[in-house]
Amino acid sequence: MSGDASDVTFGVMLTAASNDYGLEEAEIPPAVRRLATTAEEVGLDAVVAGDHVAYPEEIPTDYEYSKTGEPPFDTTTPIFDVFQLFAHLAAITEEITLGTNVLSVPYRHPVLLAKNCLSAHALSEGRFELGVAPGWLSSEFEALGIPFEERGTRTDEFLEMFERVREKEVLGFDGEFHSFEPLGFYPNPDEPIPILVGGKSGASIRRTAEYGDGWTTIWDKPEEVREIRERLVRAWSDFDRDGEPQMVVTRPIHVGTDTDLDTDRLFVGEAESIVEEVEQYAEAGATRVNLDFYTTDVDAQAEQLERVGDRVLDAL
């Protein structure tokens, strides 16, 4: 079932917390505070951030989200723990959702990860959203002592455990990788924590339908979102799920023609053309668009968010 553009919500990706912005460490906290509060002020619905623990020297040079294949980070890039980041932002925002997009599940012991999620949800008064994936940076897995080939099954094990935690609150667990006697998982707010799952493999689609509320991706075009949604709807039916899966896509944006970027690109140009492209995503099944940027200049990013609020949201 295709949606309507007016029903699409919007978020912003805080890449300044994990990518190389050329900022001094002391400059990053004010930057992420500014972007998060600006996003809330202009009417966006979510602030999301990625998850890494420590960037190793050995990083694959086939990073698909840059022109050169080189990732926008290295061993000297400051990385802010995503849960501490959200605890900080929860105190200076009031309504905006705070979400991981995405968190590498195997990096943390499942009991600790459950505690982090429940705490973030409680401290934000029900505004936390958990976006998960098995992870991709094999050298980071090696540094953490976690077998890379086990990442998918470890992710499933956590999601199975966390589903039980939300139902029982006091739980013992006997899994393939982790087992423990009954433990109390508190705080455990009444509001359910939305779970989004990343990845395009058959296992990822199955994982989304079995445990998630929806699916999340980066940079995919409307036709790619439509194709994944068709696969996900079939899996949704296989697991007898009610309702419709959420579909979230992250894309960079530049509102306006004051750019050297090709205005034929998606989400580059005047608001009217961007609204038309949001409509294409809505028709493909997207329910939220998380905005990223073509610039690492924080002033320019904040201005773009203001343009989104003034020109794009008002036109939907």
Rank of each mutant, 00 (worst) to 15 (best):
F185K: 06
L305T: 06
P147Y: 08
L305W: 03
E125K: 14
D264W: 06
V298D: 06
F239L: 08
T97Q: 12
S104Y: 06
T257H: 09
D310I: 04
M1P: 00
S6F: 08
S179A: 14
Q246V: 05
G309N: 04
A39N: 04
V225L: 15
E303S: 02
V255E: 00
S104V: 15
A133K: 08
K67P: 11
I79L: 15
S119G: 13
I274Q: 03
E94F: 10
E224G: 13
A286G: 11
T68A: 13
L14C: 03
S6W: 00
A300K: 13
T76F: 00
G22K: 05
S273R: 10
K221Q: 15
Y65K: 13
I205M: 10
L183D: 06
V170C: 12
F177C: 11
E125Q: 13
S66I: 08
F10M: 03
P147L: 08
P72H: 02
T153A: 13
V111W: 13
T217A: 15
Y186W: 14
G214V: 08
E64K: 11
L144D: 04
K200R: 12
E64P: 14
I146Q: 01
E167Y: 01
Q84D: 10
I59D: 02
R206N: 15
P72M: 00
M161N: 07
T208P: 02
C117R: 10
Y186H: 13
T287D: 04
T250N: 00
F158S: 04
F148V: 02
S104H: 05
L89C: 11
E57N: 02
G69C: 13
G11Y: 04
Y55T: 05
S201M: 09
S179Y: 10
H88S: 14
L313M: 02
D310T: 04
F83T: 12
V170N: 07
M161L: 15
D74F: 06
L183R: 15
S104E: 05
L103H: 08
E58P: 00
P189W: 07
L196N: 07
D156F: 08
T217I: 07
A282K: 03
V82G: 01
D220R: 07
P194T: 04
L14D: 03
T97L: 08
D62T: 14
E191K: 15
A203H: 08
P30K: 02
V308P: 05
D314L: 15
D238L: 02
E94K: 15
I195E: 01
T9C: 04
Q301E: 14
V32H: 06
E142Y: 09
G269I: 03
T153Y: 05
A143G: 13
E210K: 15
A16N: 02
P222Q: 03
D174S: 13
I92Q: 15
E223A: 15
G152R: 07
L305K: 03
L196R: 10
R154D: 07
S273K: 13
E223W: 11
V105H: 03
P110G: 11
E40W: 06
R226Q: 11
Y294M: 06
D45N: 12
E227A: 12
C117I: 09
S201Q: 10
L232E: 03
A282R: 08
L44W: 06
R288D: 09
T37D: 00
D310F: 04
T250R: 09
E306A: 05
A90E: 10
D4M: 05
